[in-house]
Nucleic acid binder design. Sequence first.
DNA 1: AAACAAAATGATCTGAAGGTCTTTAAGTCC
DNA 2: GGACTTAAAGACCTTCAGATCATTTTGTTT
Lengths: 166, 166
Amino acid sequence: MATLTQGTGYAIQALSCVAAAAGKPQLIREIAESCDLPAPYLSKIVHRLSRVGLVKTQRGINGGVTLLREAVDITLLDVCRALDDPVIHPRCLLGVAECSDARACPAHAFNMEQRGKIIEFLRATTVADIAAFEMKRRWRLLATAGETSEPATSDGPSERTEGSEP
Amino acid sequence: MATLTQGTGYAIQALSCVAAAAGKPQLIREIAESCDLPAPYLSKIVHRLSRVGLVKTQRGINGGVTLLREAVDITLLDVCRALDDPVIHPRCLLGVAECSDARACPAHAFNMEQRGKIIEFLRATTVADIAAFEMKRRWRLLATAGETSEPATSDGPSERTEGSEP
DNA sequence: AAACAAAATGATCTGAAGGTCTTTAAGTCC
DNA sequence: GGACTTAAAGACCTTCAGATCATTTTGTTT
């Protein structure tokens, strides 16, 4: 349904994983293992991310993947654009060929409204949000008895509404 | 993005076309031509619809496709179920494998809300709504000067909220 | 320079959706 | 019963996302 491609999802998880490493280069292999992703495929995705300048990749000893921008400055929409995810291309819900604002299908208004909300969510949510959520979840799992202190990050996406439509 | 498969869209258009014929059997060929769909492919889709009892198909002279239920009794969700469209299977927006209500990904709440709205729309919209919309559009195109009377059907989906979750 | 460790690259495989074509079966009409 | 008309069915084909594997670069360390 209203979903990103698997590759985009992998990219988001991987970026979140790199963000959590706080600057220390992460190997493709490490990322793949910690996120449970297929390493050779992830390698290609990371390469695409590096070509658009989201990450830096370094070969050789002490190499790996690092972020080129702050995690709070990478929105999920950025990732979708980088990988040309179909979510950014408007498409008729019913598959009507000549469906547009001018020649709207019966589902057009509804569909455009939904699309707007998804784009808004993707723009408002950053890699840092994902990383924080994952980290929180891990801490919560560790704190089985309940007296461990919680991290200070908020639950929802940080409000970042600058940037332009795709 | 939040879209049905092409086949499901084809099915909805075809059913709407059959509904507009008001009981007169429509040939696959006629439907394909009027909706601009590939006829052999449409044939397979119609066959699937007939196997689940949405339409009746009749071979030979005066044969063709007719609805087995009233157009106002066929929701888009029925069509999705008939063709097992992926829209009815919940899936994580980020592609996280073990994402569920219990083990939610950062996009889970948003995603489930969006999904609910789509399901609701699909349940509230019927083949009759699509047919009415298409007929209205055609009349509007004919009435270039503006004095032709409009049909009496409403614009939005008729409110039908019975039925159960998929 | 040599050895090694990593990502980059290209070839290839798989499965599913979408699509075409030909043959077959099931009806109707004369 | 024979000719005709129609959907059904089966065999393919194409495209693309997802995925794997082997090989080649590019870098670091000694």
